[in-house]
């Protein structure tokens, strides 16, 4: 592979990390818990992409296994969230936005 490839891969990895930072803004602001959960989903994919790029940039095939594990587990948090808590409309009142148990029949 041409020698300019490795620095290019490092820049790509840093770029994906940048998109992860953008996603973190949604996690911070996301009015409803559903927004935060989907942002976490996006960040999981970003982390997988970074790992694949690093595997090539640092020539470490083991990182593919780490990416494989993350890919397999990408849906666990989401599944637990949906099953146990569920999406709730964002809180209108000021101050704390505590997780609100879904009222039945909403």
């Amino acid at each position: 592979m041409p020698e300019w490839m490795t620095p290019a891969l490092w820049i790509a990895a840093a770029a994906v990390l940048g998109t992860i930072a953008l996603g973190l803004v949604r996690v911070e602001r996301g009015p409803s818990n559903g927004d935060r959960m989907l942002a976490a989903q996006l960040l999981g994919t970003g982390a997988v992409a970074v790992l694949l790029l690093l595997a090539r940039a640092t020539d470490a095939p083991a990182l593919l296994d780490v990416a494989l594990v993350l890919a397999l587990l990408a849906c666990v948090a989401g599944a637990v969230f949906v099953r146990r808590i569920g999406v709730q409309p964002p809180e209108r009142d000021e101050g704390r936005g505590p997780t609100r148990a879904t009222e039945d029949g909403s």
Partner: peptide, 10 residues
């Protein structure tokens, strides 16, 4: 983070 759900996701 005040909202514990946000804290857990973070």
């Amino acid at each position: 983070s005040a909202d514990l759900f946000k804290a857990v996701v973070q």
